[in-house]
């Protein structure tokens, strides 16, 4: 049979096409029947607004997906890092039904962004996009200060129509006069926020004795200072006088309350959770440092 094939190019070509189509049919065409099935729909997941969509298109234009992924895998470290505090904060198929194209990416030169929405206040993102190293020292992300240019909204409506997303005239008008950076931040703040993983994550109170093991231990404060400058100073200021975050010098909270806030985050004020990246010990060291500077003017 092979002898025949070697003399009949048309048959060889057709047979090669058939052979290629077998795996294609099973693993690429057939899954359309299961993926994005209505039964996997998540009610909270909404299409993008005009501003968010424009932000997403800038994300695509700038190739952010070359360094950032948007899928949290059901692995302990992935969930702890990118959906902290939750047990089931990994990505679900129903979250992506409005993503044309998907932006899952293939390399995490920077962190995953599937759950970035709501992690930081908008002001954090503005500062970070303009000068990443000011917020994250030693980061290798390029500056995107040029996104402060006006957003081109001339085909926004056509885009919404092409994707079949609902919109109001008010939403379209809201895009006008915005900068590209506004759109980008609007997009980032939506990411991962359509499912209630964050609320579920911080619902439970911390159990155990919230007592600082480094109380009265000067060494804890010294290390705490370093940790503070790496993780907290960007928002609360090197001098603890506050900026994006609240001032800490005159904070009227017990150490236990501060621990809960740092460990679990405070959604209402846009305070991210640090429990899963710092761990208890380092959080207490930071608190030791903050306490040592209490009352300073």
């Amino acid at each position: 049979m092979f002898d025949l094939l070697e003399k009949k190019p048309v048959i060889l070509l057709l047979l090669a096409a058939v052979v290629i189509m077998i795996g294609t049919t099973v693993t690429m065409i057939a899954p359309f029947k299961w993926i994005n099935d209505p039964s996997q729909k998540i009610a909270g997941v909404k299409p993008y607004t005009p501003l968010q969509l424009e932000g997403r298109d800038i994300y695509i234009r700038e190739g952010c997906n070359n360094c950032h992924t948007q899928t949290v895998r059901p692995l302990v470290a992935d969930v702890a890092r990118y959906a902290p505090g939750s047990t089931d904060g990994y990505s679900k198929v129903g979250e992506f039904v409005y993503d044309q194209p998907h932006l899952w990416g293939s390399r995490r030169t920077g962190p995953d962004l599937a759950r970035i929405g709501g992690k930081y206040p908008g002001a954090w993102h503005y500062k970070h996009m303009v000068d990443p190293q000011s917020m994250v020292p030693k980061s290798n992300m390029p500056s995107y200060a040029f996104l402060k240019q006006p957003l081109d909204s001339s085909i926004t409506e056509r885009k919404m129509k092409a994707l079949g997303f609902p919109y109001t005239q008010g939403e379209l008008d809201a895009v006008k006069g915005k900068t590209e950076l506004d759109a980008m931040v609007a997009y980032l703040q939506k990411l991962g926020n359509d499912i209630p993983w964050r609320k579920a994550a911080v619902a439970g109170p911390l159990v155990g004795d919230l007592k600082n093991p480094f109380a009265g231990n000067a060494a804890g404060g010294v290390e705490g200072k370093k940790l503070y400058e790496e993780n907290c100073a960007q928002c609360h200021g090197k001098d603890l006088k506050g900026d994006i975050g609240v001032p800490l010098a005159e904070l009227k909270k017990t150490e236990g309350e501060i621990f809960t806030t740092i460990y679990q985050g405070l959604d209402r004020l846009g305070m991210p959770a640090f429990g899963d990246t710092l761990g208890k010990e380092k959080v207490w060291k930071v608190i030791s440092y903050i306490s040592s500077r209490k009352g300073e003017k």
Binding site: T24, P31, N36, V93, P101, H102, K159, L163
Partner: peptide, 24 residues
Amino acid sequence: GIPVSLTKSYSAFAGANDANVQWW
């Protein structure tokens, strides 16, 4: 894809389907 202008189009597939087609 779905073209919206000469320089912009959206994938014909969405989300996980798009990912599966892309890596195929």
